[in-house]
């Protein structure tokens, strides 16, 4: 495989993470618990969409990649495609993912390579996403009985999707497994301060036949894609 192909593979994976999570966060528009959160989630989604556009353009035509690929051709982590659930699920997903993305971009920004420019820019934005998720985890975990219980359920439900983040990714010249202990420590620290236990159980699910990075996705992802792609597919070549 050539270096360019390697870069495409990694750009596609990271770009799909950003695109899919951006869409999932966008689903909150009109439904967030308070106006400030609607704006916050929309802004985070916009940051992610900006990253996705740059990353997917490194891999090919951004519109074709976003709107015309089938489910199996997407390379995003299963974590980011999980439905928003209640607000606690969205915050747990944000906590797990933004901590990972922040560590990853900080590392990519520090080494020369095709991702250094984007990473150096985006790491500063993601620092705010991470802060947002951590503050909400503390508030919900250390809040009412109801919010604590919902946050506990959400953290547990998404735990099995967190192992995939640290599997080797073709085209990235770094050992992702090195990020894992730092991620675990950071998440553990936030959960503990929120009065939440670190979930138990496997972080890769019960079976191991590959996951999002190999194009294997969970059930709800197909429905998400149908909604995301139908306008573009129904009106090929249309523009505003």
């Amino acid at each position: 495989m050539t270096t360019t192909t390697h870069t495409h593979t990694a750009a596609l994976a990271l770009g799909d993470d950003a695109l899919v999570l951006s869409h999932r966060l966008g689903e909150w528009m009109g439904h967030a618990p308070v106006l400030e959160e609607e704006v916050a989630l929309g802004n985070i989604a916009l940051d992610l969409l900006g990253q996705a556009r740059i990353l997917l353009s490194m891999a090919g035509d951004e519109d074709e990649l976003a709107y015309l690929r089938e489910e199996r051709a997407f390379r995003n982590l299963q974590l980011v495609e999980q439905p928003g659930g209640d607000f606690a699920h969205t915050i747990a997903r944000q906590l797990y993912f933004s901590t990972y993305q922040h560590l990853l971009y900080a590392r990519l920004a520090s080494v020369e390579g095709p991702f250094a420019g984007l990473a150096a820019k985006a790491v500063k934005e993601v620092a705010y996403h991470r802060d947002h998720a951590e503050q909400w985890t503390l508030r919900l975990g250390d809040g009412t009985e109801e919010s604590h219980e919902r946050m506990r359920r959400a953290c547990t439900a998404l735990w099995r999707f967190t192992g995939e983040m640290f599997a080797p990714l073709d085209g990235l010249d770094l050992d992702l497994s090195e990020l894992e202990p730092v991620w675990l420590e950071s998440v553990r620290s936030v959960l503990e301060r929120a009065g939440l236990a670190v979930p138990e159980g496997s972080r890769t699910g019960a079976w191991r036949a590959g996951a999002g990075r190999e194009g294997l996705h969970t059930e709800s992802f197909g429905r998400m894609l149908a909604e995301m792609q139908h306008l573009h597919r129904s009106h090929p070549g249309a523009s505003w």
């Binding site: 400030e36 704006v39 916050a40 802004n43 985070i44 940051d47 934005e125 705010y128 802060d131 947002h132």
Partner: peptide, 13 residues
Amino acid sequence: LLSRFSSTACKAL
């Protein structure tokens, strides 16, 4: 601080 994100991503409320 009221909200970390305001009318645009670059502003806080």
